[in-house]
Nucleic acid binder design. Structure first.
Length: 367
DNA sequence: AAAGTTTGCAACCGCCTTGAC
DNA sequence: CGTCAAGGCGGTTGCAAACTT
């Protein structure tokens, strides 16, 4: 005994839609709206079940759909949200205007999941994969990943807490028009949970908590537990403090500006084996000895903290292949703790640095 | 050029939630 | 409160196109 079919399927067409069918459906909905999907096919003269019509409209025919390649920002958003929400595609789609849940799901399965796997990150847990001995494959990247993961868990806990306080959902922007975020219909929704929750904002709150007032006041875009710094633009607009790095596809490296003075940090500078940072020049290794560069950059940052507060860092990616988290690794280097845990001392350093930046500078990104 | 394999994605399937009664 | 229909969602499949051998 199986469940009875959702609609009478005898004689109904299945498979790819023809242009004629598309035209019929489009014309009918434009004229009458869809109303009841079950009743629509007969009215529109289609030999399809209502469910099929609905899917075709939602995923393909709607006029407000953006098709084609996903931008880097969209990719980042998907990965970030997936880290927070898991396979709640409709909730993820709610944060990506003009993209359908089906398209996002397909893109995840065919592109992003593979990319994370290639980077040694489990796309399900968003944690570094382990070898048969239970050790992470890439210990150098473990510490900050662990921290992201910690922040992610904190974000989820925060979501739950906040969800008990929020009662007024923001307007939905997705054609499915259902609850967002953790409100997915398949989620185990606790009583009083809001219908819509901006998980990215909640996440940003956690990140700002981690990185101090500078981040908190400057609307930083949030990293996820899954990715390294150099996949993120942790800056959204002036006044701001920036961490900037090259991304996976090797885009040119942004510069920073303070009081009209452009701080050079372009690819050309890097290619010339030096990276001017404010009044300080940070050298780096071109031969792949990134750790050395981290230490150098950290010393520079440390010097800044000790008295040169008028001008501040920030770092950049040296080598795409290393996918490294500059600041955290630099902080680790400061304590001889490279590859180890990002401990309280490092956190204190980081928070102090960011507070200093916040107090003394106003930076603007220059692209 | 042909055969085999992989990839990308549209569409389907079945389960779940919601709302009306 | 229970039942049922409809819609929504996520997992999976099927197939065409692209790629490799």
């Amino acid at each position: 005994m199986g469940r009875s079919p959702c609609c009478e399927k005898v004689g109904l067409k299945k498979g790819p839609w023809t242009p004629e069918e598309d035209q019929k459906l489009l014309a009918f909905i434009e004229q009458h709206g869809h109303g009841s999907w079950r009743a629509l096919p007969a009215k529109a003269g289609l030999q399809r079940c209502g469910k099929s019509c609905r899917l075709r409209w939602i995923n393909y025919l709607r006029p407000d759909i953006k098709r084609g390649k996903f931008s880097l920002q969209e990719e980042q958003t998907i990965i970030q949200l997936h880290a927070l929400l898991g396979n709640r595609w409709s909730a993820i789609a709610a944060h990506l205007p003009k993209r359908t849940d089906n398209e996002i799901k397909n893109y995840w399965n065919t592109h992003l999941k593979k990319r994370l796997t290639k980077m040694g990150i489990d796309p399900v847990t968003h944690k570094p994969k382990t070898n048969p001995l239970g050790q992470p494959k890439d210990t150098a990247n473990l510490s900050h990943m662990a921290q992201w993961e910690s922040a992610r868990l904190e974000a989820e806990a925060r979501l739950v807490r906040e969800s008990k306080l929020v009662s007024k959902p923001p307007p939905a922007n997705h054609p499915h028009d259902h609850q967002l975020g953790l409100g997915s219909s398949k989620a185990a929704a606790p009583a009083g949970r809001p219908q819509c929750l901006d998980v990215l904002k909640a996440w940003q709150g956690v990140v700002s908590g981690m990185f101090g007032a500078a981040c908190r006041d400057n609307n930083l875009e949030s990293p996820t537990s899954t990715l390294n710094f150099n996949e993120h633009v942790l800056l959204s607009g002036p006044p701001a403090v920036g961490l900037f790095s090259d991304n996976l596809v090797g885009n040119s490296i942004p510069c920073f500006e303070k009081s009209g003075q452009i701080i050079e940090g372009t690819k050309d500078n890097l290619d010339n084996s030096s990276m001017p940072i404010g009044l300080h020049e940070m050298t780096y290794a071109t031969d792949g000895s990134v750790a050395t560069w981290f230490q150098d950059s950290f010393r520079t940052a440390e010097n800044i903290m000790e008295g040169l507060s008028s001008d501040l860092m920030i770092c950049d990616s040296v080598d795409n292949d290393h996918n490294s988290s500059i600041i955290i690794n630099a902080a680790e280097s400061s304590t001889g703790n490279v590859g180890g845990n990002f401990d309280q001392e490092n956190k204190n350093f980081w928070n102090g640095l960011m507070n200093l930046v916040s107090a003394s500078t106003t930076w603007s990104p220059v692209f």
